[in-house]
Design a protein around this nucleic acid. Sequence first.
DNA 1: TAATTTTTTGCGAATTTCGAAAGCGCAATT
DNA 2: AATTGCGCTTTCGAAATTCGCAAAAAATTA
Lengths: 155, 155
Amino acid sequence: MLKLDQTDLRILQSLQADGRRPYTEIAKQYGISEGKVRFRINRMMESGVFEFVIHTNPSKIGLHVQAIIGIVTKVGYRDKVAMELADCKEVRFVGAFAGKYEIMIQAYFPSNERLIEFTDLYLSKVDGIEATDVFLELKDYKDSFSYIDLADEHF
Amino acid sequence: MLKLDQTDLRILQSLQADGRRPYTEIAKQYGISEGKVRFRINRMMESGVFEFVIHTNPSKIGLHVQAIIGIVTKVGYRDKVAMELADCKEVRFVGAFAGKYEIMIQAYFPSNERLIEFTDLYLSKVDGIEATDVFLELKDYKDSFSYIDLADEHF
DNA sequence: TAATTTTTTGCGAATTTCGAAAGCGCAATT
DNA sequence: AATTGCGCTTTCGAAATTCGCAAAAAATTA
């Protein structure tokens, strides 16, 4: 497990603000060499610390319906069901949870019809699923991937 | 609202795979000019269709505890509470929902202690919150930002 | 149809990335 | 104390990419 020092955290912080910020600019920003920035970024990526992505705004590409779905599975079926759900393109997030639901997912749909199709035609037929609770999102307040405050004492 | 054509979707698809892929490479990939790729990317960004970010692996930076928290608010307090929660650095996602919980959030913590602090010392004292249900995540199966299948007939 | 706006193309200039060699610091070994 | 090895950093020119901009082309509007 790679241990991150202040340089790494600063680089992450800088890239959180703009994933395409040039190495040279990050270097200038912190008074270090471009090669160092590059070395650290490559090392962190190889260690799986982060990756470069784009964050698309779902509603701007026509995905107007978002839901969190809690799923109750039969004993022994959690892993199988979770892996199957992870393969669905509508599904952004799948996790195993403690408590009422063995699995919770977050998924996006173009319309309510598609959400209903997903729950009634697909989910209800997945082997191992006992029950589902759909939480329909009405409004987004925050959906950020730059939530980490690297100035925090914890790091 | 910007309407996306096939060129835009292809560019998004390409950048989903690698947020740092050069314009020139995307251009080559689809047989279009670098200038066109750049023009489309700038336009989409200005319209808020997407942004360049990095996706950090929470556990690799010491955030080992993840939770989804359902929140029941007093009538009329949802907006106020949601906005307040959105300001918390631990919180990645805040949405207003239909159903049992007016608000659901997704948050990351370095340890169970910090989660307990958050719920018992912070959440319980926020004015307008009536009750909370914490769903503690045990395992990540999928946490992707490239969930969009742009080959889908829907787009 | 003409006028206007939007999008695309094509370039050279400026900037960034990349590869690789050399240098440095430090701990372990002799 | 000198040596060795290893990981990290610096440096630098070559290659690739980005950028700005003007002109052409295409689409939209009047």
